[in-house]
Design a binder for these strands. Structure first.
Length: 627
DNA sequence: TCTGCCAACGATAGGGATTA
DNA sequence: TAATCCCTATCGTTGGCAGA
């Protein structure tokens, strides 16, 4: 714990230096606690990995994710872009390089399409993509996208599914060590992906997004590597075999594994027992459905799920530990020696969901969620080691970042992402000053921030975010569209996709009555708006805020964005259509209130802006004299 | 101080993509 | 085909601010 504090202190010092000299005027109260991947270098992970070795080249380049929502049509398309490729041949590497160069060459100066055009809100042509993209990209998407996808994803698909061993054990396969997953590495084995274990539909997937998307996105031929040359890839051969396998499959009914509450709420259930994290945090009773007695299938387990026979904790999280559980050793703090644990006795380990850094009983009661198992103790030990690594590496990386910032000139507008320093995704996000202009006084001169693929060179693990080939395909399509017409994607979605996953200890929550709230003592506002520099403690807060900056792209009927008002105040882009009111608001909600409950409050006003705008203010006041 | 207005937070329902 | 859960929209609530 002392070393941890020391690391924090060291990092804090570095961070302070960084803050003082940050070209973005970014102030932070704490150090970055995130681990910098060892594979990263000043060259950036993509180039570094390309040059590092031919065996398993991981390229992280030109990654983005965005979601474009057209409110008029209701069409929604999620794009995720990544080019982190796992490949094993020169051809694959060349393909990767081709894509990489394409993205590099296609980065153009920022611009904001349709800005200031009031008619933009009524423009229903582009659907999810601006018309400029459509005209510049043309058609013939799907085929090209398929080719790209085959090239960039087939060799990496191996990493999208568990290896045979993990699959047989029903364990999570992390693929962390390149060719081998951690589990196989520890066992001295090599990950295998045999035909028997293969999941059949790997190769067959449908075009992501929508028909509109497919008609407007086009990947330039120059950017498309000749992926057909990759057909000798072992995995591709497997995939082809898979696609040819038409043998009927026996339909199996999945077992209800999530707890009842999570199942009902349709939220992720980590299936921890006796209480999943969701129920634990809500102080609710976690109930799992009783499996059928004659079932021969073993229920799925997470790596924390333990045999019921070893459980010593109560089902109800708030219930204290029974006193009979004699040899309980509370391993509250990661790093605590495990030597005192008697392997033959029950060992109480903190609920894994509490994380490694939440040892304070005022924050999480340690009476909750204990497990009795050696594996849990082992896991705790692992968490301890991970935490210490994070602490040490974050201190180093924070110091490096501070040095980098000291040597950089001051910037006055939204930075188009420098080539340095190379930081991890978490680091990038946590030191969000990397996206923050100098000061709030420069707000009015701020450029509309653009997506720049090099943002995501910093995230070598980006591929892990994709769950399917379909998502990768969408990413490839988006990459091409974006590269051809940068700046056209939703700011909110681009930024939000890169939000940090705040680790425990950074955003602790405390129990406040019935609710769990962020601990004001420790909560850091790690989420920053790149436009106005407002900061938020939660992703949701920033998400909401970012929508305010982008909603004018898809104004509902009757509302429109006023260029004139925006010139005066960029934050007030929602203007009342009623003459002579024309009051402007910074949010759509504000204008809605204005039209609905506010000055123009009326039944008509609550229906649509068109109707509200068409009706006179006198009529509305007559209808609602009280308001 | 009160009230109206606004911005934002947090919880939740549920559509639907994905997976087993 | 059922289960999982990501993701979005929506709603209720809270807190800050400005004007009365």
């Amino acid at each position: 714990m002392a070393s941890q504090a020391q690391s924090r202190s060291t990092a804090s010092t570095a961070s302070t230096s960084s803050n003082l000299s940050s070209p973005f005027g970014h102030r932070r109260s704490g150090p970055c606690q995130y681990q910098q991947p060892a594979s990263q270098s000043r060259k950036g992970p993509a180039r570094a990995l390309i040059e590092r070795g031919p065996k398993f080249v991981a390229v992280s380049q030109a990654t983005t994710s965005a979601k474009t929502v057209n409110r008029n049509t209701g069409m929604q398309a999620t794009h995720s872009l990544s080019a982190e490729y796992g490949s094993s041949s020169d051809q694959e590497r060349e393909a990767v390089e081709a894509m990489l160069n394409f993205h590099r060459s296609s980065q153009s100066p920022p611009h904001r399409s349709s800005q200031g055009d009031p008619s933009h809100a009524k423009d229903d042509v582009p659907k999810a993509v601006p018309a400029s993209v459509e005209t510049s990209l043309g058609a013939d998407v799907s085929a090209e996208a398929d080719r790209v996808l085959d090239g960039i994803a087939l060799s990496s698909l191996k990493r999208l599914r568990p290896c045979d061993s993990c699959r047989a054990m029903r364990k999570r396969c992390d693929f962390e060590s390149g060719e081998n997953c951690t589990r196989c590495t520890e066992r001295g084995e090599t990950c295998a992906y045999t035909d028997e274990m293969r999941k059949k539909p790997c190769l067959s997937f449908s075009m992501g997004g929508t028909a509109e998307m497919s008609s407007v996105y086009h990947i330039p031929a120059a950017a498309v590597p000749d992926v057909r040359a990759l057909s000798d890839s072992p995995y591709m051969q497997q995939a082809i075999l898979a696609s040819l396998d038409e043998s009927p499959r026996i339909a199996k009914t999945r077992r209800h594994a999530a707890c009842t509450a999570c199942h009902t709420k349709k939220i992720k259930c980590d299936m921890l027992k006796p209480s999943c994290t969701g129920c634990y945090e809500r102080s609710k009773v976690c109930v799992y459905p009783i499996p059928p007695q004659n079932s021969d299938a073993e229920p799925r387990k997470t790596h924390f799920a333990l045999p019921k026979s070893t459980l010593i904790s109560p089902i109800i999280p708030s219930q204290p530990i029974p006193s009979e559980t004699s040899t309980i050793v509370k391993l509250e703090v990661p790093g605590q020696s495990l030597a005192s644990i008697n392997p033959s006795s029950s060992v109480a380990v903190r609920h894994p969901s509490l994380g490694p850094d939440s040892g304070d009983e005022s924050i999480h009661s340690v009476d909750n969620g204990y497990y009795s198992t050696d594996s849990a103790a082992s896991r705790l030990n692992q968490l301890s080691q991970e935490q210490s690594q994070i602490d040490s590496s974050s201190a180093i990386s924070s110091a490096a970042l501070a040095i980098e910032n000291l040597s950089k000139p001051q910037r006055t507008s939204f930075p188009a992402v420098s080539s340095s320093p190379v930081v991890s995704d978490h680091h990038l996000s946590n030191t969000s000053g990397a996206h923050r202009p100098a000061s709030a006084s420069q707000k009015s001169t701020n450029q509309f921030p653009l997506f720049n693929p090099s943002y995501f060179e910093r995230d070598p693990n980006f591929i892990s975010r994709f769950k399917s080939k379909k998502q990768i395909k969408q990413a490839a399509i988006t990459a091409a569209a974006l590269a051809s017409n940068p700046g056209t994607l939703s700011l909110a979605d681009i930024v939000l996709d890169k939000l940090p996953r705040v680790k425990p200890g950074i955003q602790k929550r405390i129990k406040c009555g019935k609710l769990w709230i962020l601990d004001p003592e420790t909560a850091e506002k790690v989420y920053f708006c790149p436009i106005c520099r407002k900061d938020y403690t939660t992703a949701n807060g920033l998400k909401y805020h970012l929508s305010l900056h982008t909603d004018f792209h898809n104004m509902p009927p009757g509302y429109y964005w006023s260029k004139e008002s925006a010139t005066e105040d960029l934050t007030k882009v929602f203007q009342c259509t009623v003459e002579p009111c024309r009051k402007a608001y910074s949010t759509l909600a504000g204008l809605k209130y204005h039209m609905g409950k506010g000055k123009h409050g009326s039944a008509e006003g609550k229906q649509s802006g068109d109707e509200a705008g068409a009706s006179s203010s006198e009529d509305e006041e007559d209808l609602n004299p009280d308001e």
